[in-house]
Every structure is written in structure tokens, then in C-alpha cells.
Design a binder for these strands. Structure first.
Ligand SMILES: Nc1ccn([C@H]2C[C@H](O)[C@@H](COP(=O)(O)OP(=O)(O)OP(=O)(O)O)O2)c(=O)n1
Ligand SMILES: [Mg+2]
Ligand SMILES: [Mg+2]
Length: 1188
DNA sequence: ATCCTCCCCTAC
DNA sequence: TAAGGTAGGGGAGGAT
């Protein structure tokens, strides 16, 4: 089997600040000291502390992203990256200095990889500095001759900036002390020439039962972990533990693993987690197994499927080395303590006869089986046995579907007698691993799987097709794979207990009860029918991490997994476990108790794997959940919509304007051209004169330039004339007349305006001075400027700059300041003449800021109050408190959707590639793609015709929703930024405008005469769905209705239910939208608070005319204040459908409006003014003038 | 008709 | 003390 493979090198993290383990040893030490003060054995108090710290942590992170970011930057200052460990993959064993986490960071930062679990197929070097006796023995069985080196090798290599020969870093001490090891390595040492050249080892020393030693594993309580122990602070103790550290000290030490002070908590946690092991095993497997060739099997052939599953896997791997346990009931668990809240991972068959099952608490298991022996995990053993298992399986069939580390399906159709193949496999497995496996053989996956169950332990069983029926007959429903607890209960409730019961029902009935797919599956499975095919590994669909703690750590973990998988992700889902209301502290140590799960997701316009971005996203997602952090029991972050980085280049290529035009010349250009509707389909450019100037104008500069180049510059003049017109309009319209008054900056700006025409500031002249600058940043700009053909805009230069790679050479303060001034002046000069260019430069600036520190600083100088590039998630309703009413835009429909377009050409080739034409910073109207209206249909049809394509997979709608803090200090700049930086979803923009129009003052409840406008009493509710029915107990307003209120969170369908209810009962009903699981008490409290607040300030509680016409943000939470406007009247009927469809005009108008406001924003930014919200009146007035 | 989000369920 | 992770499938209800 060709296991030899080149290891995919994961790209080094771009931003060093994002890596792990940046904390200093000192801080760790003090952290551990703190834990020591906490007293021992008092787990209740521990828990309280845990919760408190968790609270502080989250509070700090969620509420103050700026601060945390700042810290991260500080930490990252001196970090560097390189590629010196390219191709090297280390496994750290035992306690080391630097710690295993630090080594991990170093490796990742310098191009290497780090394996948590040892595997000879992936690991190239083993690092350790100090090994317990028993570990050394173990080495013989697993190191397989790989070099065992001291960590100094890594540290020194980094210090000198290249890979040092490792020969002198071998662990001599150990060789000399340990005859077994030294003799073993003695032969190998001669071979080493000291480079990273590591041969594929034949398994010389493999699986010699006589040489292996009884595992050191848990031969006594308190020594539960023998696997790969290491710790940054307690390493020495760790070794002592093996020699019998006192129980108390040991506990103390252990505790540091679980405190929140431990910066490596997540890492450590995972290291000991069986579920993490299982969950991540597939990744490791896929990394080693080469892409299996697509095997085409004769469909007419009768299928033979073999299902192989190791018997009580986790147990047998451990017990094979411990004959003294033969015949005894054994379970695998970390701890054998009296508390007994550890979980049994697997139990052997002896134990199972007592009723011990995987997942049981030790406590419970001991009740069933008092003599149960508890053994510790041997993750490395599992890894090795799995490696061997799969090696054998792949030898026997080209088509292997890995289910987990101990089980797989093989398709052996037409390859001879499946039963003898199965027994050969089982025999080989036993010979190679001394663990037994069972096998099921049948015609499909389902039956093979069921057969295995019957065959266990250590047997095999075949279900021939003709026997299938009988076999299925009396099978209890819960035996069917896929039927778990919930489904079983549902089935039992319907009095369906066996498959024969199931077979009495029609497929329709089942579908009705259980949903389309599930029903159908039940119908088929009850009959022994299963159409699933044995599948080789598929492209992964999601990557995630779940843990108990730490948004940032979590983000980094996920980001590093993304990098490892060489993908970018676009959709981020945060999953939070929250204490169920009423539930107490968890019984289980570190458990989460009874919880509700909440999840939130957001989608970025383009993929990322940056831990920086991820951690900001996670903070925001977390923040948007509005949780009381004391109730948080677990947080997970999942990334979906993965984009393969290796395809990205190609995808980018697709977005080049040229290829775009070339690929589909007619449709897209036609839409925007004035004449000659039917041109030839030749991939030729239409004459320049046929191109609508509007189209040109709306193109982002880079695309425009590309097009312009294609037209050899002809277009520039067209655009120019258009621009001149535009600027005329602006001036005639006295666009900024209203700002001409008082403020100091106005005069500055006025000057700037003068400058523009009198050419005081000459961009190109200034730029040419940069040629000799010391600053690389400035020189680069100059160089690009000279290389660009007849540059007209600075953005052209920045575009190129943005596209070229950035070496993060430190820039001096001077050059930063020069650069900032230059950009500012340029912006000032064009501020009134070239709106597009202004926005182009700003966007590019922000993009550049994400790429290099220098530009980041420039960006901060030019736009001190504008956020650095960051797509702001989340789906909260926007509340704007101090914007003018813009009635003309109320209800307008704008739609700026982006689509990934399927390239029909590629579809024809049988491949599909997402090709996104919308990139961050360059919002593109959907019309450009002609995907609006009929456009989408066309694409979908084309795709569907060429094969069974899941359009969901291939036409990917990107949308981004804009979030704004729902509280008072609304930052207008931020919103406009987001509008520009972010793709805008039709409904959301509508929402935005709606909200902008509605709130003309600070958010006030309409309480005029009645302070306690409303108050509720909860009646009943469905906790699961976050629904609560409340009774209105106080309602004096006369506006909101009396009766029952449905409060719910993210369950928009309730609104229709409410409508129905209203019709039926003739009672008044309203809905509440809230992002928090709405507790009536919260609502009431909030209502009162607002009222009291307003009254105490003596402010009138105004009512806005339109308050009650305000649509609920469709299905969205509006924060607490939105509640009120929804309360006022149900407006479900007024959904977006009601709005007028007048797309292109509205598109343009609204874009223009937004841009004008944007301009105002920049205007003030450049003038160094603070808040601009008050100036929006001017902007919108100007905008309206422009619109007419 | 199809997609999307926010869940839930299941398996190892 | 224990280390309750990971990832795919799928349903409900709403949006388009
Ligand atoms: N709730 C669970 C289920 C399984 N596992 C681990 C331990 C098992 O050994 C391994 C494989 O799972 P199996 O379902 O194949 O169970 P076993 O191999 O232990 O037993 P069997 O002989 O039934 O296959 O996964 C676990 O940790 N927790
Ligand atoms: Mg098994
Ligand atoms: Mg299994």
C-alpha cells in the first residue's frame, strides 16, 4: 500500500499574534499559584470560582473586543514566522521545556506540524527531554526508530533560522541509561546524517508480543493518565507522580489542568478526551490515506459489503498487554475514584454481561458489576491499531469507507467469497494487533452492520439476501442504526416496536410522522433495504471545535484546523450550552449539567481562516446571544461552507472581468448596454460606444481598469465625461451647502475643495518622490505607480499593492505618517469630485490594513474612528437613534445580493466550482450577474440539466446582515461602514431603512400616560423552543391589545400563528421578538426601566406616527426595544412582499444615498471631527436632491 | 420549488 | 474529581 506520501504542509499562520501559547511562563505560574489558594476538595467552591472566572473572561472578551485585540497585538510583537520546519512533524512525549504547547506554537509558526497523537506514518521526529521509566520502555514499541530529540533542536533551529542537524540533539542520557532503548537506537544512529531525512521505516520491531511490556497504565487509583503527559508548569511533579506523589499534591497538580487560569486548558482537555480522539480521528486518517481512486463497480453485480468492527476496541487494545485481566470484566475510564462520575468509554464482553455499557458513569457500572476493573486509555495504542487495521482493510478492497477508528465498510463485490475475505481480514487483524475484530457480511450497508452486531464478539456473520426478510422481522426498532432515543420513543408511542410493526405502515404514513427522509429511511430499513453506497472519504463539509471555554482559544483552535485542512470557511456557527433555567450546579465534575443549547451563525462574504477574524466573530456571536455568562456551560464554534484554498486561485481567475465577459458575453453585458440586443456570441468585446456609461461608472475601479485595458483606454474618456457630469451635479446641487457654517473644519475642507481645482496637491508628483524613500511601503507604491499604465487613480496603485504579497517589514513612524498624510490629502483632493474613488481608496485601505501592520497603522491614522476591516455579523435589528427620518426611502426595496455563479463551462466538464464575483470591499449588484429574477432560474436550470446537482451546493447565496449595537450610543460611521463593506440582504437593508426612519430620537417607549404600560405574567411555555406564552396583566395604553402574548425567540412562524389566533378569538395578539430567550420578567423590567428613565429625565414620551407601521424585522430579534413597536401592532402582513419592486432605480438611488452618506462620513473623518450623526440630515437632503 | 437558518438527532 | 467532541443528516418554518 502506498502509504508513502508527501505531507501537505499547512500554511504558516499569517498573523503571528494568533498562535497558541503566547502567554509567558511567569503568568502561567502565577495562575497556578492562584489555583493553589483555592483550597482542596471543595468542589462546590471550585465550581463557583470556575463560574466566576468564566464570567469575567467572557465579560471581558465579549464586551471589550478592542481591549482584547490590543492585548493580542502586544503579545505578538516579537513573533516571527518562517518555513524552517517545512515537512517536519513532531510528536512531543512527556514533560518538556518549552512546554508541549509552546513547541506546538513554534512548530506551527515555523512551517512544521504538530501531532497530538503519535503515528509513525505522520510523525517524523519525536521530541522529549525527560521520560518516566515506563514510557521509555513503551518507546520501543512505538517510536519505530524515529529520531527522539531534545526540544533544544527546535529552539536552536529557530534561533539560527535554519534547520539544524539533529544528531547532536538526541536523548543521550536516555540511551546510556536504558540499555533497551540505546541498543535499539544504536543501530539507527549510524544511519542518520543529521538532516530531516527520515526514511519510511519498515516495521521491524513491530508487534512482537514478547518484547512489549505490560502497559504502565492505571495499575492503581490516582494514576489514571499514562498517556502522553506533559505540562508546562508541573512537569517535574508529573514525573514524580509516576513514582507515587502524595494524593493531595497530585490532586493539586491535576487541578491546574482544569482551571480557567490554565491558558492551555482546551489543549489539555482535548488531550485526555476520548470523544475528541474519536472525533478527530477521521481527520488524521484522511491525512494519511491517499485519495482513493474512484472505483467503478458493475452496478448489475450483486453487492457484497463487509462491515468490520473491532471488539470492545478501547478495552482490548489495553488488555492485550495485560494477561492478568483476562476473563475479568474491564472498563476504560480516566478515573476509578469514589465519586464515580467518570464515563466508561468501552467495556469488554465480560463486563457487558453485567450490563455495563459505554457512556455509563463508573458509579453506575460498579453497581452492576462490583468487580469491574478500570483501566486507563491508551490513545497511542488506539491510533496504532487503527493504522494497522486500515492498512489491512485497504489491502483487501479498493473501496473502504471509514466509519471510525475501529470500524469500516468494505465493498468487495465481485472479489470472491466475501465470507472468506472477511475471515482473512479478521485473522490478519488479530495477527497484527492481537485484538479481535468481528465482521458482518451482506448485500448492503444496513444488513452488514446488523450482521456484525450478531457476530460479536470475535465472530462473523453473513446475511444472505433471502434471509434478510426473516432477520429483520423481529428486530426491535431501536436496533436500526439511526434510531436513537428520540426516534425510539416516538416509534414506541405509535406502538411500533419491531421492524415488522414498521412494515405495516405505508411509506406515506411514515413520512408524515417522521419527515420525508427519515420516514423513507425507516420504511426501507425495516425491509432490509438500504441504497447507501460504500463511499471513500468525501470532501469535508465542516470544521469545528467545541469546548467548555474561551472564545479566543476556541477560535484559534478552529482557525488552526482550517489552516491544517487548507480551507477557508464562510459560515460560522456558535453553539452555546446554557444552564437550563431552574437547573442547579452540575453534579459531574466539569460537567455541564442540564442545559439548553443555543446556536447562532453568521456568514462572511468571503472565507477566512484567520484566528483573528474568528475570534472577533466568536465574540460577536457570543455577545449577540446576550447570555448571562454565569449560565454558560460550553461553547462551540463550527465553520461550514468551506472553500478549498487550492481552488481559490482558479476561482479568482474566474472573477477576472475578462474571463467573465469571455465566458458569457451576451447576457451580462447586454443587460447594461443600450443597443443591438442580439450580438454574436463570439467572446468579443462590444464596441466601447455601446457600453452604457452607467455600467462603467458602477464598476469597481479594478474591474473598470481591466475593462479599460481591454478597450485600450477608450473607456476612460467615457467614464470621465460621466464623472464630470456627476461632479457638476454635486456642485450645482450645493451638496454640502449646509455644512458651510460654523465649525472650524469647514474652512479646512473648503480649502481642500479649492485645492482640488488648483492642483495644489499633485498625487503623482508626490508619489514620484517616494522612489527614494527608505520605506518599503512608499517605494512599493511608487514602483507600482510606475508600472501601471497611465494611472488615473490612486486606487489603481492600491489595487496592485493589495494583490501583491506583503512582507511585513516594520515601517518607521515617519513613513507611516508620510503615507497617511499622502492618503489623506489625496482623499481631500478628490472628496468632491470622485465619490467612487473615495470609497475605492477607503476600501482598499481597509483591505490593506488586514494584510500588513504598516497599512494597518496608516489606516488608523487616516480613519482614526473607523473600524478596521471587519465584517460585522450579526442578525440583530439595527436601531439607530439619531438619524433623520427619510420617508422617501421607507419601504424601498433594495437588493444587493451576491451570488456565486456556476460556470456552465465547468458544469459541462463535470466539475463545479463556486465562483464568487462579489468580493469584500467591492459590492456588486446582483443585476450584474443577471441572476435577479429570471437570471437565477437560468443558471439553476443549466446546472440541473447537466446532472444531479444539488443547487444548494453550487449556487451559493451570500448574504450578510448588518448588526448594530442596540443600545444608545449608536455609531453612525460603523453602520455606514458595514453597509459598504458588507453584502446587503434585501430584507435587512429594508430593515435598516425602516429602522432609520422610525427612530427619530432616543429610543423611548410610548408610555405617555402610563408608566406601567404593560406587564406580563408568564403562563406556560415551551422551553425547548424558547417560547413562552404570557398574559398581559397590566395594559393601560389602549394601543397594545389585551390577551395572550406569545413571546418567542427566533421562531418567526409564531407570528402567523398569532394572526390566526387573533382571527379566531377576536382577541388582540402581538408577538415579541427578542434575541434573548424572552422571559416575561425581563420584558417587564425593561419596559419599566425605560419608562422611568425617560420620565426621570423629564423627557416627553413621544410617539412617532410610524411606530405602529413598523414591520417587525422579519423574524429577527430587535433587542428589547423592538418589542415595543411590535407590541403595538401585528404587522406580519406587511412583509417585504408589499414593497414596490423597482429594482434598478432603487438600487442606484439607494446606493447613491449610501455613498453620499459615506462621503459625509469620510469628510468628517478627514476633518478630525467626532460624531457625524447630526450631519446626516444634510446628507439625506442632498441625497434626495440628487435623486430627483 | 428551493434555499437558508437554527436547531435536533445520531454515531463513534 | 474528569477530560460530555466531532460531523453528517435532516426537519420546521420562513424567505425568496
Ligand atoms: N459512547 C461511546 C462509544 C464508543 N466509544 C469509543 C470506545 C469504543 O471502544 C470505540 C468503538 O466504539 P464501538 O461502538 O465499536 O464499541 P466497542 O468497539 O467498544 O465495542 P463493540 O465490540 O460493540 O464494537 O469508541 C466511546 O468512547 N464512547
Ligand atoms: Mg467496536
Ligand atoms: Mg465501532
Amino acid at each position: 500500500m502506498g502509504r508513502k506520501k508527501e505531507k501537505a504542509i499547512s500554511p504558516a499562520p499569517k498573523r503571528p499574534g494568533a498562535s497558541w501559547g503566547a502567554g509567558s511562563p511567569a503568568s502561567k505560574r502565577s495562575a497556578s499559584a492562584r489555583t493553589r489558594d483555592e483550597g482542596m476538595g471543595d468542589f462546590g467552591r471550585y465550581m463557583t470560582n470556575k463560574v466566576r472566572k468564566l464570567g469575567e473572561q467572557f465579560q471581558a472578551e465579549a464586551s471589550n473586543p478592542e481591549a482584547s485585540r490590543g492585548n493580542a497585538d502586544e503579545n505578538s510583537i516579537e513573533e516571527t514566522t518562517s518555513k524552517i520546519f517545512e515537512g517536519i512533524s513532531i510528536h512531543v512525549n512527556g514533560f518538556t521545556i518549552p512546554s508541549h504547547q509552546e513547541l506546538r506554537t513554534l512548530m506551527l509558526r515555523h512551517g512544521g506540524t504538530f501531532e497530538n497523537y503519535f503515528s509513525k506514518t505522520r510523525v517524523t521526529h519525536i521530541i522529549c527531554s525527560n521520560l518516566p521509566q515506563s514510557k521509555i520502555k513503551e518507546f520501543r514499541s512505538f517510536s519505530k526508530g524515529l529520531p527522539v530529540l531534545k526540544p533544544g533542536w527546535i529552539v536552536d533551529s529557530i534561533a539560527v533560522g535554519k534547520l539544524l542537524p539533529w544528531a547532536s540533539y538526541q536523548l543521550e542520557a536516555i540511551y546510556s541509561n536504558q540499555s533497551t532503548l540505546s541498543s535499539f537506537y544504536g543501530t539507527r544512529k549510524l544511519l542518520q546524517d543529521g538532516t530531516e531525512n527520515v526514511e519510511e521505516q519498515e516495521l521491524v520491531a513491530e508487534a512482537k508480543p514478547d518484547t512489549s511490556h505490560p502497559n504502565l497504565a492505571g495499575d492503581g487509583a490516582g494514576k489514571e493518565i499514562e498517556y502522553d503527559e506533559q505540562d508546562e508548569e508541573g512537569g517535574a511533579e508529573e514525573v514524580n507522580v509516576e513514582d507515587g506523589l502524595s494524593e493531595n499534591e497530585y490532586m493539586e497538580h491535576r487541578r491546574s489542568h482544569s482551571t480557567l487560569d490554565d491558558p492551555n486548558f482546551v489543549q489539555n482537555y482535548f488531550k485526555y478526551s476520548r470523544l475528541h480522539f474519536i472525533g478527530t480521528w477521521r481527520n488524521r486518517y484522511q491525512a494519511t490515506v491517499q485519495m482513493q481512486r474512484r472505483v467503478t463497480l458493475d452496478p448489475a453485480l450483486e453487492k457484497s459489503i463487509i462491515h468490520v468492527d473491532m471488539d470492545c476496541f478501547f478495552v482490548s487494545v489495553v488488555t492485550r498487554n495485560r494477561p492478568e485481566l483476562d476473563g475479568k470484566p474491564v472498563g476504560v475510564c480516566h478515573s476509578d475514584s469514589s465519586k464515580g462520575t467518570g464515563e466508561i468509554s468501552s467495556a469488554n464482553y465480560e463486563a457487558r454481561t453485567f450490563g455495563v455499557k459505554a457512556g455509563m458513569f463508573v458509579k453506575t457500572a460498579k453497581k452492576c458489576c462490583p468487580n469491574l476493573e478500570i483501566v486507563s486509555y491508551d490513545f497511542e495504542g488506539y491510533e496504532q491499531v487503527a493504522d494497522k487495521l486500515y492498512e489491512i482493510l485497504h489491502r483487501h478492497s479498493p473501496l473502504v469507507q471509514a466509519i471510525s477508528c475501529d470500524e469500516a465498510y468494505l465493498d468487495v463485490s465481485g472479489m470472491g467469497d466475501p465470507a472468506s475475505i472477511a475471515s482473512a481480514i479478521r485473522r490478519e487483524i488479530f495477527e497484527a494487533t492481537r485484538c479481535t475484530a468481528s465482521a458482518g457480511i451482506s448485500a448492503n450497508i444496513l444488513l452488514a452492520r446488523l450482521a456484525t452486531k450478531k457476530a460479536k464478539p470475535n465472530g462473523q456473520f453473513q446475511i444472505h439476501l433471502q434471509e434478510a426478510e426473516e432477520f429483520m422481522m423481529n428486530l426491535p426498532v431501536e436496533e436500526l442504526p439511526g434510531v436513537g432515543w428520540v426516534l425510539r420513543e416516538k416509534l414506541h408511542a405509535l406502538k411500533l416496536f419491531t421492524c415488522s410493526d414498521l412494515r405495516l405502515l405505508t411509506s406515506e404514513t411514515l413520512r408524515k410522522h417522521f419527515g420525508a427522509k427519515t420516514g423513507e429511511t425507516l420504511y426501507n430499513h425495516a425491509r432490509g433495504i438500504d441504497h447507501r453506497k460504500v463511499q471513500a472519504p468525501q470532501e469535508k463539509k465542516s470544521i469545528g471545535a467545541e469546548a467548555q471555554n474561551f472564545l479566543v482559544t476556541l477560535s484559534e483552535e478552529v482557525a488552526s484546523r482550517l489552516r491544517k485542512a487548507a480551507v477557508h470557511g464562510r459560515t460560522f456557527t456558535m453553539k452555546v450550552k446554557k444552564r437550563k433555567s431552574g437547573a442547579g450546579e452540575p453534579e459531574k465534575f466539569m460537567g455541564c449539567g442540564i442545559c439548553d443549547n443555543i446556536s447562532r451563525s453568521t456568514t462572511l462574504p468571503s472565507g477566512t481562516n484567520s484566528s483573528d477574524v474568528l475570534s472577533r466573530i466568536s465574540r460577536q456571536l457570543f455577545g449577540s446571544l446576550n447570555l448571562d455568562v454565569r449560565d454558560v456551560r460550553g461553547v462551540g464554534l463550527q465553520v461550514t461552507r468551506l472553500e478549498d484554498l487550492s481552488n481559490e486561485q482558479g476561482a479568482k481567475e474566474q472573477t477576472r472581468l475578462e474571463s467573465w465577459i469571455t465566458n458569457s458575453p451576451d447576457k451580462r453585458l447586454k443587460q447594461r448596454t443600450d443597443s443591438k440586443p442580439d450580438r454574436s456570441i463570439e467572446p468579443e468585446l462590444p464596441p466601447a460606444s455601446e457600453i452604457d456609461p452607467c455600467f462603467l461608472e458602477s464598476l469597481p475601479p479594478d474591474l473598470f481598469d481591466e475593462l479599460n485595458n481591454a478597450y485600450k483606454g477608450e473607456l476612460a474618456s467615457i467614464k470621465l465625461s460621466k464623472e464630470t457630469e456627476a461632479s457638476k451635479v454635486e456642485n450645482n446641487g450645493n451638496l454640502f451647502q449646509c455644512e458651510q457654517d460654523s465649525t472650524e473644519s469647514d474652512s479646512n475642507l473648503g480649502k481642500a475643495r479649492d485645492k482640488k481645482n488648483s492642483d495644489v496637491f499633485d498625487v503623482w508628483d508626490t508619489l514620484s518622490h517616494f522612489q527614494t524613500s527608505e520605506s518599503k511601503m512608499l517605494r512599493d507604491m511608487h514602483d507600482i505607480y510606475t508600472s501601471v499604465d497611465s494611472p488615473k487613480h490612486l486606487s489603481q496603485v492600491l489595487v496592485v499593492l493589495n494583490a501583491t504579497s506583503h512582507c511585513d517589514e516594520a515601517d518607521s513612524d515617519d513613513s507611516i505618517s508620510i503615507c497617511s498624510k499622502f492618503i489623506s490629502q489625496y482623499l481631500l483632493a478628490i472628496l468632491y469630485s470622485d465619490l467612487e474613488e473615495v470609497s475605492a481608496v477607503i476600501r482598499l485601505l481597509k483591505r490593506l490594513a488586514t494584510k500588513s501592520d504598516g497599512w494597518n497603522r496608516v489606516c488608523a491614522c487616516v480613519l482614526p474612528t473607523t473600524q478596521p476591516w471587519q465584517v460585522k455579523p450579526y442578525v440583530l435589528a439595527i436601531e439607530v437613534n439619531s438619524l433623520p427620518l427619510r420617508p422617501s426611502l421607507r419601504g424601498d426595496l433594495i437588493r444587493i445580493d451576491y451570488h456565486s455563479v456556476i460556470e456552465p463551462k465547468l458544469v459541462a466538464q463535470g466539475t463545479l466550482r463556486r465562483s464568487s464575483k462579489a468580493c469584500l470591499g467591492w459590492p456588486v449588484e446582483s443585476e450584474w450577474y443577471n441572476l435577479d429574477q429570471g437570471g437565477t432560474g437560468t443558471h439553476k436550470q443549466e446546472v440541473c440539466q447537466s446532472g444531479p446537482v444539488n443547487t444548494n451546493e453550487n449556487i451559493c447565496r451570500m448574504e450578510e446582515r448588518v448588526a448594530v449595537d442596540s443600545q444608545t450610543n449608536y455609531d453612525f460611521r460603523k453602520a455606514v461602514n458595514e453597509l459598504l463593506a458588507v453584502e446587503i440582504h434585501h430584507g435587512v437593508v429594508r430593515e435598516v431603512l425602516e429602522n432609520w426612519g422610525v427612530f427619530s430620537g432616543p429610543p423611548v417607549l410610548e408610555l405617555e400616560d402610563h408608566e406601567h404600560d404593560l406587564a406580563f405574567k408568564p403562563l406556560c411555555g415551551d422551553e425547548e423552543r424558547n417560547e413562552t406564552i404570557v398574559e398581559v396583566v397590566e395594559n393601560t395604553s389602549g394601543v397594545p391589545p389585551c390577551g395572550e402574548y406569545h413571546c418567542r425567540d427566533r421562531v418567526p412562524h409564531i407570528t402567523s400563528h398569532l394572526l390566526r389566533l387573533r382571527r379566531q378569538c377576536d382577541c388582540q395578539v402581538a408577538a415579541f421578538h427578542s434575541d434573548i430567550p424572552l422571559q416575561a420578567a425581563d420584558t417587564r423590567a425593561r419596559v419599566r426601566e425605560i419608562a422611568r428613565d425617560a420620565l426621570s429625565r423629564g423627557e416627553p414620551l413621544q410617539r412617532h406616527l410610524d411606530d405602529f407601521n413598523c414591520n417587525p424585522p422579519p423574524g429577527k430579534a430587535g433587542g428589547k426595544l423592538t418589542i415595543q413597536s411590535e407590541l403595538a401592532r401585528m404587522t406580519v402582513a406587511r412583509t417585504t412582499k408589499e414593497a414596490e419592486q423597482e429594482p434598478s432605480r432603487t438600487h442606484v438611488a439607494t446606493m447613491l444615498w449610501i455613498l453620499v452618506i459615506f462621503l459625509v462620513q469620510i469628510h468628517f473623518e478627514l476633518a478630525g471631527l467626532g460624531h457625524v450623526s447630526s450631519r446626516c440630515c444634510a446628507a439625506s437632503a442632498a441625497c434626495e436632491q440628487l435623486l430627483h
